[in-house]
Structures are given as C-alpha cells and as structure tokens.
Amino acid sequence: MWEAGIQHIELEKGSKGLGFSILDYQDPIDPASTVIIIRSLVPGGIAEKDGRLLPGDRLMFVNDVNLENSSLEEAVEALKGAPSGTVRIGVAKPLP
C-alpha cells in the first residue's frame, strides 16, 4: 500500500538514463490490475545521487504520461521516450 499523496521529483536525464529499474506488481487493492514499482537504483546513477527515489516507490507518472493503470511496457516506453534533460516523475511512497 502507498500514500495517497504524490511526490513530484525532477531528475536530469543524461545518456545513461535516469538510473533506476521498474517492475510490475499485482495491485493489492485490485488484483485484476498492476502497479509500477521502482525495483532498484543503479549504483552511482542519477536517481541514487538525487536520493529521493527508493525501491518500493510506486511510479505514478513520467512527464505528462499517467502510469496509474499502465502496463510495464507502457511505463518502460514513457521512461525511454522521455527526452534528455529535466524529466518530471511522480511517485507514491509506501505506507510505513
């Protein structure tokens, strides 16, 4: 389960991407759907250096692409398709 509020994070995407990987996970509230979760951070990558994204965070959007009900493929496309420079990411943090 995740917090209702969405944290807005801006990262600078370079030639090596944003520095994290994702996975799809069965939604605990709606078993028929999936949620997109941050799986891991690349050591020394943009996301790890920034410090705000953590494994277990739920990915909600990338720039103007809503990922609340997306497939893993759609989420990967949104991340890979984001141009270099500032990328806006929304995440919901896990409940304590």
Rank of each mutant, 00 (worst) to 15 (best):
M1R: 03
M1T: 04
W2F: 08
W2T: 09
W2P: 02
W2Y: 14
W2R: 06
E3I: 11
E3V: 05
E3S: 12
A4V: 13
A4I: 15
A4D: 15
A4G: 05
G5S: 12
G5N: 14
I6C: 09
I6L: 05
I6T: 09
I6Q: 04
I6A: 05
Q7S: 07
Q7W: 05
Q7V: 11
Q7A: 13
Q7F: 06
H8F: 13
H8A: 14
H8Q: 11
H8S: 13
H8R: 15
H8D: 05
H8W: 05
H8N: 12
I9D: 00
I9C: 06
E10H: 06
E10Q: 12
L11D: 00
L11F: 13
L11P: 00
E12P: 07
E12R: 12
E12H: 07
K13P: 09
K13L: 12
K13C: 08
G14A: 06
G14V: 06
G14M: 13
G14P: 06
G14T: 13
S15Q: 14
S15H: 05
S15M: 12
S15N: 07
K16S: 06
K16V: 08
K16I: 06
G17C: 08
G17Q: 05
L18K: 00
L18P: 03
G19A: 02
G19S: 03
G19F: 01
F20R: 01
F20I: 08
F20N: 00
S21W: 03
S21M: 08
I22W: 02
I22V: 15
L23C: 15
L23G: 10
L23D: 13
L23H: 15
D24I: 02
D24T: 05
D24R: 06
D24G: 04
D24K: 06
D24W: 03
Y25F: 07
Y25I: 06
Y25N: 15
Y25L: 07
Q26E: 13
Q26M: 05
Q26N: 15
D27P: 10
D27K: 06
D27S: 11
P28I: 10
P28E: 15
P28Y: 05
P28M: 07
P28F: 05
P28G: 12
P28N: 12
I29T: 09
I29D: 15
I29Y: 11
I29H: 14
D30H: 07
D30A: 09
D30P: 11
D30Y: 11
P31M: 08
P31R: 08
P31A: 10
P31G: 11
A32M: 09
A32K: 09
A32F: 11
A32V: 14
S33I: 06
S33Q: 12
S33M: 07
S33R: 05
T34M: 09
T34V: 09
T34W: 07
T34I: 08
V35W: 10
V35L: 09
V35C: 10
V35P: 14
I36R: 00
I36N: 14
I36T: 06
I36Q: 04
I37K: 15
I37R: 14
I37E: 15
I37H: 09
I37T: 15
I38A: 03
I38V: 14
I38E: 01
I38D: 01
R39K: 14
R39S: 10
R39G: 15
S40K: 13
S40H: 09
S40W: 03
S40D: 08
S40E: 13
S40A: 10
L41D: 00
L41P: 00
L41E: 01
L41W: 02
L41R: 04
V42G: 04
V42T: 13
V42L: 10
V42K: 10
V42I: 07
P43L: 05
P43C: 07
P43W: 03
P43Q: 10
G44P: 00
G44E: 04
G44R: 12
G44H: 14
G45L: 04
G45Q: 04
G45Y: 03
G45S: 14
I46F: 09
I46S: 13
A47V: 04
A47W: 02
A47C: 05
A47T: 04
A47R: 01
A47P: 03
E48M: 05
E48N: 04
E48Y: 07
E48V: 06
E48G: 05
K49R: 11
K49V: 11
K49S: 10
K49M: 08
D50Q: 06
D50Y: 02
D50M: 03
D50S: 14
D50H: 04
D50V: 03
G51M: 04
G51L: 02
G51Y: 00
G51S: 08
L53F: 04
L53Y: 00
L54H: 13
L54F: 12
P55M: 09
P55D: 04
P55E: 14
P55I: 14
P55R: 11
P55Q: 15
P55F: 02
G56F: 05
D57Y: 10
D57T: 10
D57P: 01
D57I: 02
R58A: 04
R58N: 01
R58P: 01
R58F: 01
R58S: 02
R58D: 00
L59G: 01
L59S: 00
M60I: 11
M60G: 01
F61V: 11
F61S: 07
F61T: 10
F61G: 09
F61Y: 09
V62H: 00
V62G: 00
V62I: 10
V62Q: 00
V62C: 04
N63R: 02
N63K: 01
D64F: 03
D64H: 13
D64S: 13
D64P: 01
V65M: 07
V65F: 13
V65R: 11
N66L: 06
L67P: 01
L67N: 00
E68I: 14
E68Q: 07
E68D: 08
E68T: 09
N69W: 07
N69R: 09
N69E: 06
N69S: 11
S70E: 09
S70I: 07
S70Y: 13
S70M: 11
S70P: 04
S71R: 05
S71V: 12
S71E: 08
L72N: 10
L72V: 11
L72M: 13
E73P: 11
E73I: 08
E73F: 09
E73Y: 11
E73C: 15
E74G: 06
E74S: 13
A75T: 05
A75G: 15
V76G: 14
V76N: 12
V76W: 13
E77Y: 09
E77N: 09
E77C: 10
A78F: 06
A78Q: 11
A78H: 08
A78I: 10
L79Y: 03
L79Q: 02
L79R: 00
L79E: 02
L79V: 10
L79S: 01
L79M: 12
K80Y: 07
K80I: 07
K80E: 07
K80H: 09
K80G: 10
K80M: 08
K80C: 13
G81L: 12
G81S: 14
G81T: 11
A82N: 03
A82I: 10
A82D: 03
P83Y: 06
P83K: 08
P83R: 07
P83C: 06
P83F: 03
S84T: 09
S84Q: 07
S84F: 11
G85C: 04
G85A: 03
G85L: 03
T86L: 07
T86P: 11
T86N: 10
V87G: 02
V87Q: 03
R88N: 09
R88T: 12
R88S: 09
R88G: 07
I89W: 01
I89C: 05
I89L: 14
I89G: 01
I89T: 00
I89Y: 02
I89P: 00
G90F: 00
G90H: 02
G90W: 01
G90P: 01
V91E: 00
V91N: 01
V91Y: 11
V91P: 00
A92W: 04
A92I: 10
K93L: 03
K93R: 09
K93W: 02
K93M: 03
P94I: 15
P94M: 15
P94H: 15
L95N: 08
L95V: 07
L95P: 12
P96T: 05
P96H: 04
P96L: 04
P96V: 04
P96Y: 05
P96E: 15
